[in-house]
Amino acid sequence: MDLENAKVQMRKGILEFCILHIISRGEVYASDMLEELTSAKIMVVEGTLYPLLTRLKNSGLLDYKWVESASGPPRKYYVLTDTGRVFLTQFEETWTDLQASVAQIIQDSFHHHHQQDQGQA
């Protein structure tokens, strides 16, 4: 099994969640979103973001509006729709449950290995 591929797949699974979370704070420009995702090491390829934003928009979870810019052409700012807010709330519940489940499994594995190390398995 390829570790890099596994890491990419894991990131992909939570990328939408992170994007929706960033947009939930208020209107956000794509390049600012990209900067935050990159600095958090969630995403490193710019080409991944725009198709994902389009898919989320087509799913009715987000929308965008054009805002005039003093320094050039209008900029596209993304916002969550009401549907997107409901989706994000449900996604957060799932994330919280998953985190707890994964933490429990990791903790059980740690205890199991610790017992084996002490010859108590």
Rank of each mutant, 00 (worst) to 15 (best):
A30S: 15
S101W: 02
I23S: 07
G47N: 12
E36W: 09
F17K: 03
S39F: 02
D82V: 08
Q115N: 13
A70V: 11
E93V: 12
L53Y: 08
A103Y: 09
H114C: 09
G47T: 13
S31N: 11
F110Y: 15
R75K: 15
L52N: 01
V45C: 04
E4G: 03
T96W: 03
S69M: 01
H21S: 15
V67K: 14
Y78E: 02
R85F: 07
Q120T: 01
I42P: 01
E16R: 05
G60P: 12
W66V: 04
A30K: 13
I19N: 01
H113K: 12
A40P: 03
G26P: 08
E35C: 00
V28Q: 06
G26A: 10
E46C: 00
Y50M: 06
A121V: 05
R11Y: 10
R25D: 12
T81F: 05
E36L: 13
L56M: 14
E46I: 00
A100P: 01
D117H: 05
L3D: 04
R85Y: 06
F87G: 02
A100F: 03
S109Q: 11
D108P: 01
T54P: 00
Y29R: 13
M33G: 10
T81Y: 00
Y64I: 04
H111R: 04
Q99F: 13
D97V: 13
K7Y: 03
D97T: 14
R85Q: 11
G119V: 07
H114L: 14
R25T: 11
